[in-house]
Simulated assay, not measured.
Amino acid sequence: MPLHVPPAPAPALRSVLTALGSPTAVREARTPSLLRAQGPVTPELPLPVHVLDGVDASGVPVTRLSGWRFLIRCGDRAVAAAETMLTPDGWAFSRFFEGPYIASTELALRQAETMTQPCQPRLLSIPRLYMLTLWLHGDCAADGAAGRPAGTDLLVPLAPAPPGIAAHRPHRVADLLPVLTHRATPAPLLSSPA
């Protein structure tokens, strides 16, 4: 399936390019794979990062855009990622990082390319579960920075996923979201005996 990657805001991309061109920013990032990169590094596959804040009274997901994530490629693989954030002055570089979500994101994107339905890839973070998913939005023409997951959209949990949730297995939002919401809802406090 062709993935319709939404364009990142130009200032977000510029901020990442500036950070990549700054030896101080790269050195202070303490990302060993970025420091060891042989050859040019380029930011690719900008994905909007949305945070799931919960669901409203009617069960509709409440999300907010937290930034844009770029995979940093060196040669034939991603070696790190860069994130940007929206500040009062516009888009700004936030940080470089590496870890298991880099390879997991690449794998999930490759899996998504084999599906038959076109979609727009995004990332959906569920902080209460320490979980990140590839969100495959069905409206390819939508603004990547806006919107909420539709019931027919797909979520692909990235590895490492929380216990009991299989990584890299696509789930419809309507099926997975109730499970995630239940898990993320704090248990009521038990009252002490009188």
Rank of each mutant, 00 (worst) to 15 (best):
P6H: 03
P6W: 01
P7K: 07
A10N: 07
A10C: 08
P11N: 05
L13Y: 02
R14M: 13
R14D: 15
S15D: 03
L17R: 15
L20K: 10
P23F: 12
P23D: 13
T24G: 08
A25M: 13
V26E: 05
E28P: 03
R30Y: 07
L34K: 02
R36M: 15
R36H: 15
P40L: 15
T42S: 15
E44L: 09
L45S: 11
P46C: 08
P46Y: 04
P46L: 10
H50P: 09
D56P: 07
P61N: 10
V62E: 14
S66W: 05
G67Q: 04
L71P: 03
L71F: 01
R73K: 13
C74E: 13
G75I: 01
D76F: 05
D76S: 14
A78Y: 12
V79C: 10
V79P: 10
A80G: 06
A80Y: 01
A81C: 11
A82N: 08
E83K: 07
E83W: 00
E83G: 14
T84Q: 09
M85G: 11
T87N: 09
T87F: 06
T87I: 06
T87E: 13
P88M: 11
G90S: 12
G90V: 07
W91F: 03
W91D: 11
W91I: 02
A92G: 04
F93L: 04
S94Y: 08
S94T: 02
R95Y: 00
R95G: 02
R95L: 10
F97V: 02
P100G: 10
Y101D: 14
I102V: 15
I102G: 09
A103Y: 00
S104M: 10
A108V: 00
Q111L: 12
A112L: 12
A112P: 09
E113Q: 15
E113N: 07
T114Y: 05
M115S: 14
P118K: 06
P118W: 03
Q120S: 14
L123P: 04
P127C: 09
R128N: 13
R128G: 15
L136C: 10
H137V: 02
D139Q: 14
D139C: 13
C140T: 14
C140H: 00
A141D: 13
A142N: 01
D143W: 00
A146Q: 15
A146S: 14
A146L: 15
G147Y: 01
G147E: 06
R148M: 06
V156G: 07
A161P: 07
P162E: 05
P162C: 09
P163N: 11
A167S: 14
A167I: 04
R169V: 09
R172M: 09
R172D: 03
D175S: 14
L176T: 10
L176S: 08
L177W: 02
L177Y: 05
L177P: 10
V179Q: 13
L180I: 08
L180Y: 03
R183E: 08
A184L: 07
A184N: 05
P186M: 03
P188K: 01
L189P: 01
L190G: 05
L190R: 04
S191P: 07
S192N: 06
P193H: 11
